[in-house]
Design a protein around this nucleic acid. Structure first.
Lengths: 190, 190
DNA sequence: ATTCTGACCGAATGAACATTTTAGTCATTT
DNA sequence: AAATGACTAAAATGTTCATTCGGTCAGAAT
């Protein structure tokens, strides 16, 4: 059986980062999990950081896939937006890797972890900017700055999905959809 | 000249906390700034924590005053809301004490500092809940859960005032008002 | 020739110990 | 009766040094 060395190293590393976080994962451990000599890792990756970036990039790709997969052309812009954002955030929430990274940021504050989560957020923002521009062109939404709008939409979602449940009962997907509809789509004005 | 011991200690302590933060401020220093023996402080406050709480409470009172002061009955609910929130956040932003506490949370993560900023946020939320209930009764806004609405409004403002400028040019007061109007008041739907 | 390996090295880490600082007390002074 | 500051126990900080870890490379395996 021929195995793709690079792939199996990446897979082992992802597992290990996910279980132990960035800092607590040693290259020895990755090598052991991948059943590979430590030196082998360095024939595929320049250093630990680059290996980590590779994994994060793959993760970002997966996030984009989840987001794109949640969009179906027959639904309205707002339905699609909600479904895409909610599934991305759910995905992110359930993914061991991001959980460990968020913990690491809280506990230690590794630059790598901060940077990595920032990159994930940027990818989501880029995705949002695209579909907002599309929606504006189609006339589904009012004229607005796509960047600020994407930023506001993401912040609102993060607030409703993550921040709210820090001190209250979590909101269901339906509740979040309704609140998003009320606040951002229809507006508060009577 | 008779001086109020408790008041001058509080004042000295506030100055000191504001310049150095919670952790770096010693009781010796407070006593020196207040021109008072260290023991005297303990006749008015049980411990350092209680002295700190006294100051934070005074700060929350000031925040409430600023918010209330920004409201004038002849203006609309949304005008008032924006003016109140914006002046509170500006006040908070310019206040040395909160700046130092925010830094401290980022750098170290003192429980006291976290708790204190959480309390400030709670006070603002309570204030918002009140004026939202009022506005709903008057029929200025649609029916909504006041707590969630207050939470969303505050998060949106913090996002626009603090978070946005982490990676972009700061938004002016007018821009923020316009964005708030667009996103939360009128809604994105065309 | 090419891929893979693990012993080896200097740098980084953190455990253990030593020193300093600080919150809070209380006997003494005012 | 109120105020004080020297004093103490505990916490924070600095220092040392053995261990660990990321990364290299000479040589083995294919």
């Amino acid at each position: 059986m021929v195995v793709d060395r690079k792939e199996s190293i990446t897979k082992a590393a992802e597992e290990t980062f996910a279980s132990f976080g960035y800092k607590a994962t040693t290259m020895d451990l990755v090598a052991r999990v991948a059943s590979v000599g430590k030196g082998t890792i360095y024939t595929f990756f320049k250093n630990k950081e680059e290996l980590f970036y590779e994994i994060m990039n793959q993760f970002i790709q997966k996030v984009k896939k989840v987001a794109t997969g949640a969009i179906s052309p027959e639904d309205t812009f707002f339905e699609n937006l909600h479904r895409a954002l909610f599934s991305v955030l759910e995905f992110r929430k359930e993914h061991q890797l991001t959980i460990k990274l968020t913990q690491e940021i809280r506990e230690i504050g590794t630059m790598q972890a901060k940077q990595a989560l920032g990159d994930v957020e940027d990818a989501i923002l880029d995705f949002l900017v695209d579909i907002i521009k599309e929606a504006e062109k189609k006339g589904d939404i009012k004229h607005c700055d796509p960047k600020v709008t994407a930023f506001v939409i993401l912040k609102l979602y993060i607030a409703l999905v993550f921040d709210w449940e820090q001190r209250h009962e979590p909101l269901s997907s339906k509740e979040i959809a309704d609140l998003f509809e009320l606040y951002l789509v229809r507006g508060l004005k009577k």
